[in-house]
Design a protein around this nucleic acid. Sequence first.
DNA 1: GTCTATATCTGGATAGAC
DNA 2: GTCTATCCAGATATAGAC
Lengths: 230, 230
Amino acid sequence: MEQDIDFKTFKRVVSLSMEDMCRDLFLENPRGIKIKKEGVAVKNLVKIFNAALAISNEKGFAAMSMRDLSAEAGLSMGALYTYFSSKDELLDMITHQGRMVTARVLLDQVDGIDNPRARLKRAIEAHLFLSEIMQPWFYFSYMETKNLSKTQHRKAIETELFTEKIFVDIISSGCEQGLFREVDVDLAGAALKALLQDWYLKRWKYAKRDVTVENYSVFITNLMESYLFL
Amino acid sequence: MEQDIDFKTFKRVVSLSMEDMCRDLFLENPRGIKIKKEGVAVKNLVKIFNAALAISNEKGFAAMSMRDLSAEAGLSMGALYTYFSSKDELLDMITHQGRMVTARVLLDQVDGIDNPRARLKRAIEAHLFLSEIMQPWFYFSYMETKNLSKTQHRKAIETELFTEKIFVDIISSGCEQGLFREVDVDLAGAALKALLQDWYLKRWKYAKRDVTVENYSVFITNLMESYLFL
DNA sequence: GTCTATATCTGGATAGAC
DNA sequence: GTCTATCCAGATATAGAC
């Protein structure tokens, strides 16, 4: 379990197609979605989510009209409303599903790795690789957080702090074991989080400079280690 | 000129009141604004900008209606439209004015400091202190970039790259002088930029943890130096 | 310069045919 | 399950009184 992982392997192991995620959503949500047949529902959810993410990441969720969405997804407005009861509910659905996957995958990836240095490295890779695969989703969640309903907004903040805590805990245990020097673990964790987020927030920049996700992963790991070891 | 600067001194020296900025805008823009008397125009521009930043940073510019703005600013809708010709123009005005100030202050602050280490420290402080004073403005600009008109959007990206280049150039000169070790200067610059941006993007987090801007400045400087010196 | 009142249009949501 | 047609609340923007 402690062995290294590369992006290709990661992608294969976690297998997070849009279809898988939409199927999960459908199975979790027997009430909200009026459609009965799984095949039809999943196929259309994929179309809806892809369209919503594309338009919203271009000009913002609030600026996306239901007519825009209808055109891009290739479904009539009437059909759209059999999958959610309001535009706000669609927003909540998308972010909710993203959060579930993130938490599950991150915890799963660091599980069983005890050495803090190895654990930190893997956590960084897992976060970056995941956000690479699900970039539109991560970008969307970041930008639309403040537009969520109050309960979903609270959950979004909880998840932000939860994933940050994963990093803080790793750094703390490294300090306790005398492996890392004594640092302000909260600040270190916050900084690491910011660096990981930059990967999906400024993808255009890194793409233009031909920085791959593996390059970036190595760089961030080195940066953090040079601070923690000194 | 090379001496240290603290937040209080910085605040006094750059003196960036909302009023100063609105006066600049008024004097630069004799065409767009229909109001003739400087006193009246500046007073109302301050009210409009404060209101627009407050509402937009709460729920997004697109979700802010002109009625919201009218109520919060204490001006009728008719009066609002004597200061700009459309909601989109208001968006452009706000971001434009913020960019002008940022570029001017940053260049001004590092001017005359030759030693790369001192220059880097000062650039970090200047960016953080500036974004502390103008937090609503910085947050707004970041979140609303993708909603700008095409020309203003292009300018926003140019400014992002311009300020990043200030950091990259400092790091490069440090490497050339053999003061810093050889690193990927573009990645280092991008990372630093991300860390500086986190300060105004997650202010709620740092405020809750009682991290001051000076604390954060010292932390970021140490983090970067531990990577650059090693 | 500022306000009120209003013209005009767009967008979310739904009813009912197929 | 999906589509078309439509309702109507609420949005931007302006005209004209004061």
